[in-house]
Structures are given as C-alpha cells and as structure tokens.
C-alpha cells in the first residue's frame, strides 16, 4: 500500500509556469490610466457656458411636443401668481448649455459628459452604458438667463464583473448655475465602462 504523505503535494505543469512568466495582456490590465483617472476625483472639469440666453420660444416648443398645458407656462395670471414670471420647463435643464447645430467659425462641438468619454479612453474601456441618471432642480431658469455647467467625477469603482463584461462604474455630476452663480440644477450619471467578455 503506498505511503501517504503527511503534507499535500500539488504538481504543476510546465505550461503553468510558462503562463506565469508571460506579461499581463492589455485585455487583463485594468490599471491602465488608473492613476490619471483617480486624479480627476472631486475636481471641477470641462466648464461650459451656454452659447445663447434662455429663450421662451423653446419653452413652448417643449410643451407642444408633450402637449403640456400647465398654466405656469401659458397663462399670464398663473405665471405671475405662482412662479413670479416666466420659467423654463424644469426638465429642459440640459438644453441651456447644449451648443447649437452650427455657428460661424466654430470648428468643434463640445460633447456633453466629456469626462465620461475621457474615462473610457484613459482606462481603455471601449464600451460603456449609462446605468442610472438623476436630475435635481434648483432655482427656476428664466428667459434671459445664461446657464453654465461644470463636470466632477464623484466616484470610480474597483474592477467589477457584470454580464456585459469587466470594467468599472463611475459617477459624474454636472452642476449647473445661472449667470449670478445661483444653483439651478445637477445632472448625475452613473455609467459602467467595460471590456466585453
């Protein structure tokens, strides 16, 4: 009867040691660009100011598109009584800092959520999906206002595995203020940047 060893012995194949000596492939390396991305945490970046003053005509177009008859957008008495003057439909927040389709002399159009696309590139995560979005509304936006926004990376997760692939979750705030610096709203996007498989 063979003698049983008191300590377990595990045998490894030659291929196992060869595999250990191989450099980590880019596909498995989730530290690419990590230090740079972490340096963006809680830093205000990509400030944008709307190219146009807030215009009441857009209010009516938005309301017409969804047949919103709320009197605070249509009825002068309700406007004076309730909102103290015309206000933009709240959910138009992002419209006020989006660039127009064309302007003379403009060569590039700034992208909303630029930090999101920078994270994809910097962390070498070619795919991304927005998983959750949240919007909070502050002071009402009124005709003649000029809205500015600035992005801040709030969090960057450890490497996670989901059914989509491996990658990281991040949360970005886009904080919006009017020309007087008054807070008018914040959009927050949670996204998962990943490599398939």
């Amino acid at each position: 009867m063979p003698k049983k060893s008191s300590t377990a012995t595990r045998w490894y194949s030659l291929e196992f040691f060869i595999e250990l000596l191989k450099p980590v492939s880019a596909a498995d390396d989730f530290t690419i660009g990590l230090d740079q991305a972490l340096s963006w945490l809680d830093q205000e970046r990509h400030a944008v100011t709307g190219e146009f003053d807030v215009e009441r005509g857009y209010f009516f177009t938005t309301c017409a598109s969804v047949q919103n008859g709320n009197p605070i957008y249509w009825d002068d008495a309700a406007i004076a009584d309730i909102t103290g003057g015309p206000t933009a439909p709240l959910t138009m927040l992002s419209a006020w800092f989006r660039p127009h389709y064309w302007m003379p002399g403009r060569e590039t159009i700034p992208l909303p959520w630029e930090t999101h696309f920078e994270l994809k590139d910097t962390l070498a995560l070619p795919e991304a999906v927005a998983t959750d979005s949240e919007v909070a509304f502050g002071a009402p936006i009124r005709p003649g206002d000029r809205v500015s926004c600035v992005e801040t990376l709030r969090s960057l997760s450890e490497v996670k595995t989901t059914k989509l692939g491996r990658g990281r979750f991040w949360v970005i705030d886009c904080v919006c203020r009017n020309q007087d610096g008054e807070w008018v709203g914040t959009e927050t996007m949670t996204a998962f940047g990943y490599r398939k498989g």
Partner: peptide, 29 residues
C-alpha cells in the same frame, strides 16, 4: 431622453397641478 423627461414632468403636474414643483427624478431607460 429630455423629451421622455418632459413627458414625465407633464404627467406629474397633470396630476398635482401647477403649484407642484418637481425637485428631483431618477430614471433607468
């Protein structure tokens, strides 16, 4: 997405009336 949000805003104020003021919303599409 903003148009879906505009529908949401209409839906809420159709129910609650013009003095209702939307403070925050979250969504998953």
């Amino acid at each position: 997405t903003p148009n879906q949000a505009a529908w949401l805003e209409r839906y809420i104020t159709d129910w609650a009336g013009p003095r209702a003021r939307l403070g925050r919303y979250k969504f998953r599409m």
